[in-house]
Amino acid sequence: MKIFLDCEFTQLNQDSKLISIALVSESGAEFYVELTDTYSVESCSDFVIQHVLPQLDCLRYGQTLVEARVSLRRFLSGFDEELEVCSDAPNWDWDFFVDLVDVKHQPWPAQVMNQPTNLISLFSQINTEALEHIELRDLPHHALLDARVLAELFNTLVSQLKVSS
């Protein structure tokens, strides 16, 4: 089963800190958490301060890093099938996912493939005719909403490819 990953983080550099992470499965199961103890507003880029932080709801979704690690493990253990983690930005999102899985202290989750699928590469292999019928909208810079958009885009493309074959 494909599971779509998206993250929001403080800035585009090697010192970046995770702000929020979301996973949306093909079956519709969702995981979303906003971290309350991994970053400060001062470490965020102006873009993140203007576009990402105003969308957060820490009272509803906030968890410490320790709590988020437990929640993520619980979510992943709810699947029996093998999970293929897909991201449109695996060079960024995958490292945050791996850190949250906490492989330094626990074994890798058995049902999760240990490398990401790059959605941009996957989408570029899809018939351009199928892509013509898709209206691409800007991602809202909210991890859960973005992961939902990626899942929806993938499911739409797969269904169009089935219809055209």
Rank of each mutant, 00 (worst) to 15 (best):
Y61M: 01
T38E: 12
Q63P: 00
A147K: 02
V103P: 06
V41C: 02
S77N: 15
C86D: 08
A151K: 14
V98W: 11
N114H: 14
C86P: 12
N91K: 15
Q106E: 11
I49E: 08
S121E: 12
L150S: 06
L139N: 05
L65K: 14
V98M: 14
T38C: 12
V103I: 15
V48A: 04
N114P: 10
G78Y: 07
Y61S: 02
V66R: 14
L100P: 07
Q50M: 08
V41L: 11
Q111G: 11
E67K: 05
P116G: 05
L53C: 03
L35D: 04
V103F: 14
L65Q: 12
V66K: 15
I49L: 11
I134M: 11
H141S: 02
F97M: 13
E82W: 08
L136I: 14
Y61I: 01
H51Y: 11
Q125P: 00
D99I: 06
K104A: 15
L131S: 02
Y39P: 02
D95P: 01
D80I: 11
V112H: 03
L145T: 06
Q125V: 00
L136N: 02
M113G: 00
A151Y: 04
S87E: 09
R60H: 10
R137A: 09
E34F: 02
S87G: 07
D99W: 14
L144F: 04
D93T: 06
D95K: 14
L139V: 01
G62N: 06
F154P: 00
S124N: 05
A143E: 03
S87P: 09
T128P: 01
L122Y: 10
T36N: 03
Q63I: 01
R148K: 15
F154E: 06
Y61L: 00
D95M: 13
S40Q: 14
Q115S: 15
A143T: 07
D37F: 05
Q55S: 05
L131E: 07
L53A: 05
D57T: 05
S43Y: 00
L144H: 06
V70W: 07
V85Q: 05
V85E: 03
D46R: 11
R73M: 04
E42A: 15
Y39Q: 06
P140H: 05
F123S: 02
L59P: 00
D102V: 04
Q55K: 13
L53W: 03
S71H: 08
H142T: 02
H133F: 10
V66I: 13
F96D: 07
A151S: 15
D99F: 14
D37A: 03
L59Y: 01
H141M: 01
S40H: 10
L144W: 06
D80W: 12
D95L: 12
E129A: 13
I120Y: 02
F154N: 10
R137S: 13
E42W: 03
A151V: 04
D93F: 04
I49N: 11
G78C: 13
S77W: 08
T36V: 10
S43N: 07
T36L: 09
S45A: 09
E135G: 01
E152C: 11
K104H: 14
N118V: 00
Y61W: 12
A68S: 13
